[in-house]
Design a protein around this nucleic acid. Structure first.
Lengths: 209, 209
DNA sequence: TTCAGTGTGTGCTTTATATCACAATCCGTA
DNA sequence: TACGGATTGTGATATAAAGCACACACTGAA
């Protein structure tokens, strides 16, 4: 299958398809259609068909898509057909919330390592995981062969931690610090900054008197 | 100024420009250029100039942009030149983390109301704010004229809460529940689902043995 | 003044993304 | 078996977004 030549914007939609399919499956449905999926997601049916067609022919004319087999295909395509261990750096309020969050496991990710630089936090246990010193990031992550990390440190430490993660072999960073991380080309970063989203929305609102 | 006819994708970049400008300003810089901003953000200078040109002429040839005046312009454009009160629904781990987060206030948002449906949480105080019953959402938000909300409830309650928020007059919802919210056309939603981001990134990674 | 260096704003071109619309195919029914 | 209704996969078209490249303008130095 082509790992390259697929637009990134298409890759970004696949997880949404997957999420909706699982929703449908939980509702007991066996088949769905590009039209139904599109309705759920606010996306045109043609777009969904075209996206999927980049990877193969998964549907049947007149019938639509078998939900469980399309789910399996998408998982295979996205590499979420097995569980990825994830390192979480920074166990402040946000880091703790992420550590407690139950939504990772059944969606192919599991936080397996916690790190912080605060001596008061190091050695604590959160949901059975010990908080380790950031000094151990490189060695630990290399040994465990971890490729995915979530970065939830204060902004001023984010770049230094990212550099360490990269040295340790991490190739995907989910960045909660409100700053741009500089990383090598082969490392992927996705940013989550709630304020960016809020600012983007209030553009469309009437400013209150 | 045209509130319409500006591509949404451009609006999405403006908060990034703003964030970088503030960063530069904190570093003591007075002027910057589209090239420098582009370097910080991984965006071409032409793109930045073109985006800004949709709203006016803010730069000076040969000199670039005065950071503080461009910052002010962007704030005005984005309607973040004043503080928006925000309601937060759901004070589980994530909701608490958001309530504690110090990054909203100096970026034009302030959480002013907390809601939950758990009797054990209602009445508690978090950073001086009392947790109110979700039954009070409609009345309270209407009275306070709140237009922006963050939704951090479990997935199964998200749509019902969103409906309530819409009835209360909310027009911008930052949705942390991993589901698509159905809302009227005039209501804006932005989704934050960390798993979506993770799944999107691991597509590009070698699946571990 | 003049000139070299710098950086904007923008028309034009290229590239990327989304939509349209329909032949081909499948299912269920009679 | 034949037919009506449904839905895919996709070539062709349309729309949207990004990049190019340059005239013009400003600065500072001589």
């Amino acid at each position: 299958m082509a790992r390259t030549g697929i637009p990134d914007i298409v890759i970004g939609r696949l997880p949404l398809y997957l999420r909706s399919l699982i929703r449908l499956q939980q509702g007991g449905a066996i088949f769905t259609s590009s039209y139904e999926l599109g309705q759920m997601l606010g996306i045109s049916s043609a777009q969904i068909r075209k996206d999927l067609s980049l990877f193969g022919e998964f549907g049947k004319q007149g019938t639509g898509y078998n939900i469980s087999s399309l789910t399996a295909e998408l998982r295979r395509i996205l590499h979420t057909d097995h569980e990825w261990p994830v390192a979480l750096i920074g166990v402040g309020d946000l880091g703790r919330a992420l550590a407690h969050y139950g939504g990772f496991v059944n969606r192919s990710f599991r936080i397996t390592h916690l790190f912080d630089n605060d001596p008061a936090k190091i050695g604590q246990h959160i949901d059975g995981l010990e908080v380790l010193s950031v000094d151990l990031i490189e060695k630990t992550i290399k040994t465990a062969n971890i490729k995915v990390a979530m970065l939830a440190t204060p902004i001023d430490e984010a770049q230094a931690v990212a550099d360490t993660l990269v040295r340790a072999g991490v190739e995907a960073i989910l960045n909660y610090a409100p700053t741009v991380l500089l990383v090598p080309e082969n490392v992927h970063v996705q940013d989550i900054d709630p304020v960016i989203h809020l600012q983007r929305m209030v553009y469309y609102l009437e400013p209150p008197a």
